[in-house]
Design a protein around this nucleic acid. Sequence first.
DNA 1: TATGAATGAGATTTCATTCAT
DNA 2: GATGAATGAAATCTCATTCAT
Lengths: 217, 217, 217, 217
Amino acid sequence: MTEKGIRDYFEQTMAADATITPKQRAILQASLDLFAEQGFDHTSTSDIATRAGVAEGTVYRRYKTKNAIREAVVAPIIDNIVPSMAADFSEAELHQSFATLEDFFQAIFSDRLAFVTDNAKELKVVFEMIFFNADSRSALMKRVGPLVVNQIGTVFTDLKQRQLIVDWPNDLIIQTMLSMLVGYFARLVMGFPDTDITRETDFIVMALTKTFTPSAD
Amino acid sequence: MTEKGIRDYFEQTMAADATITPKQRAILQASLDLFAEQGFDHTSTSDIATRAGVAEGTVYRRYKTKNAIREAVVAPIIDNIVPSMAADFSEAELHQSFATLEDFFQAIFSDRLAFVTDNAKELKVVFEMIFFNADSRSALMKRVGPLVVNQIGTVFTDLKQRQLIVDWPNDLIIQTMLSMLVGYFARLVMGFPDTDITRETDFIVMALTKTFTPSAD
Amino acid sequence: MTEKGIRDYFEQTMAADATITPKQRAILQASLDLFAEQGFDHTSTSDIATRAGVAEGTVYRRYKTKNAIREAVVAPIIDNIVPSMAADFSEAELHQSFATLEDFFQAIFSDRLAFVTDNAKELKVVFEMIFFNADSRSALMKRVGPLVVNQIGTVFTDLKQRQLIVDWPNDLIIQTMLSMLVGYFARLVMGFPDTDITRETDFIVMALTKTFTPSAD
Amino acid sequence: MTEKGIRDYFEQTMAADATITPKQRAILQASLDLFAEQGFDHTSTSDIATRAGVAEGTVYRRYKTKNAIREAVVAPIIDNIVPSMAADFSEAELHQSFATLEDFFQAIFSDRLAFVTDNAKELKVVFEMIFFNADSRSALMKRVGPLVVNQIGTVFTDLKQRQLIVDWPNDLIIQTMLSMLVGYFARLVMGFPDTDITRETDFIVMALTKTFTPSAD
DNA sequence: TATGAATGAGATTTCATTCAT
DNA sequence: GATGAATGAAATCTCATTCAT
């Protein structure tokens, strides 16, 4: 289950939209890069124009405000996170896919860590936005939250029935998984030097498997 | 081991410095609050003056730039984080304090989660500062990093000798602990509604204990 | 040898630079006028904007700081002073041009006094800049000094060979000439009412000729 | 006729005024130094307080405004220039003092160049003030002008009667003398390295004597 | 008298946004 | 559509001056 980067998705989306000119594309690219490098507030529209190699007015041709640019940058990221969260876990599939708890974590984390790694830049922008903006935050939560809870819930129900996972509240398990993910993201973004994705994945999968495997009794 | 809030420390620091007037204190307080609420970049010096009930010029009397204000706000926060990381773990103490692995996690997390809870606002300001500023980041790391590694390292050596903890690399264990802490901080700051600190602490301690207890064989 | 005013040169320079818009031109003109009238420090960018009939932001569009505006104003003035100092005094020309010492002073002073008269405003701005700023001063000296010394030196050598001028050290002669020029400039700028350029020129030429003609013996 | 520096006069004046405290004296000293070093506009009252080693409020104790400080600094300079210009040239004295034209120039210039040398700092402050302030300028002129013209006029009348000086208009002769003085001041203030006062005086006296000695015929 | 914190008016500067070409 | 000059509102910052202690 190789994840394509948001960037690919991003460019696909843009390519699909015939109304987006190459210049607009350059503007969104430059915006993304600069927002990730310096933060939204420290990026001026003039910076964007310069980096994109266009005139300042052009930046405003399609997007009426600087905020609209951020939204245009962030939208595909969100749109890309969502469906991957909403992956269809039909019951038949579950037994096949996740013969063991380790398989489950392996599937989730090899996928998600790769996703985070490939899209650290984009996620940094999203993160900045939701960090100080309660509205963006709740908008995102409203969209992503239920999916996570429902989809993962389905899996958990199955895993619990098969006694492959401990019978602890779902929110606590999800929480732990998200913590590991966020921790990884933090290390990545903060530029920790030795972030070896394979080592990290293997360790996280191993640790979580141990944590959430029901005690033999 | 009740932790005093950074705010108390903050006020102590200011009270100790006879050169800081009530108005300057009000300015630092207002700055801290506003930086936490709106972020540094969305807080104008005029905002600070209004909130502190002083003239705008007064904001600049002691601190020559807006950045200097942030530094004045952040310094005591950092100064407060550091010593709590540097808690003395002498060997004698270790056996007494941490008879079991659970005791260890309990000690660490009941303390740290309370600290994070009490000082979420202050930590948010620090966090914002280091998020896009590699310099601040490495400055903080240089100060905090070695303490964490050394202190925790001492404990781990002891725990490993007594075979209370698995013989995995220290960095991976620390990483996991930090992930849980960061995850908790994230939920708190993002305003998750049902963040029950006792429930969280109990769960984290329990989960980590299970994760890092050596398998009986 | 009619001298064109710095203002003409100034406008030529601007006209030649297609990237300078009429508004930018108005800004530089207004700046020059105001700097000369009130001094640099007593001229606010708001003054400049008002006089130039533009918005205050426009003042900063091309020149990033108020100091950069001064530089843009002063540069063409300096550029204009320099070449006129570097007038080519080839030997052949010398004998023709300066048959007598009076011819020499007449040539120099009718030219220089006219220049100072026409460009008093501009020179005042340069003067203000170098008065308290050792850096600007030495920068100007490095550029202008050698030219004056070399060019005038050539002439002096010739005049001395032909025994048309006393054999005193060049620096003292130059000094005297400059004193007369500076004295004239001071009277002009200080607004002395009866500064009649012809009378002044005639007098200065006459006086200097007498001063520096070798005594018959 | 040895001239005491303005500084001495300055301090005498202050010492004589029992109402001026040592702190006020320090303030005037510091102001003078800073105005001469950096110019009036680039010297803040805070700079003055720091340099004088007093509190900022103290600066305002006696002088109500920054401009009043400048006036207090400048007044003794003016007061010192004026009487020296108004030296009584009674006819009897003239014949004694100035047996030759050279004696006259020697007296004037050895005195005035020494004065300029000793008080370059103070004169720089006066100069800055009158350069851009027409009011200060005309106030000074009204005070100094007539004295110069009358006193020097008396001398000239005498010298002309004795045919020691050419019968040229007084204003042109005065002008030339002032030009030499201003030229010297300029070199001094601009920091020309090799300003040797004896050499300069000797040269100026010699040159002017030659210039203004009536031609033998 | 001396202090120095406080003031507020005004200066410089930035930058998202508009608009004529 | 694209350009980039122009805008003006708002931000940061300075500093002469006041005033309570």
